[in-house]
């Protein structure tokens, strides 16, 4: 199966790029949904897109340490200023949607497995 880039996923799911636009060409191998940071630390895998409502800087520390492809913030959440700054520095995309984690994850799952 061919993997999609963040940019392609953004277009398909109408996500907003909130920060880290340098990372839009990264390839996405799957997704992980969690708001518990140690859960993501322990169980997410390289190349996955992380769906969460957490908006602080530590999200980017984990995304970077785990080599995640990017982050999707749900329910219209915006990244804190230092999270956005870190995303830009690391070149890891932070995407946004007004939709809930359930809806966007369903769409992402369908898209990645179609």
């Amino acid at each position: 199966m061919d993997t999609m880039t963040i940019k392609e996923i953004c277009n398909a799911l109408q996500l907003n790029v909130l920060a880290g636009s340098k990372g839009l060409d990264k390839r996405v191998t799957g997704g992980y949904v969690s708001d518990l940071l140690s859960d993501v630390m322990g169980n997410a895998r390289e190349g996955e897109l992380w769906v969460t409502l957490q908006t602080h800087r530590n999200v980017m520390a984990i995304a970077s340490l785990k080599d995640l492809a990017g982050v999707i913030l749900v329910n219209g959440q915006q990244p804190d200023a230092d999270m956005a700054e870190q995303a830009n520095k690391e070149g890891i995309a932070v995407l946004g949607t007004d939709q809930s984690n359930f809806i966007i994850t369903g769409k992402l799952f369908q898209l990645l497995n179609s």
Partner: peptide
Amino acid sequence: EMGFGAGMGLPNIHK
């Protein structure tokens, strides 16, 4: 509230 403190840290290290 930040998503830490779920009691998974030490088990993650152990694993």
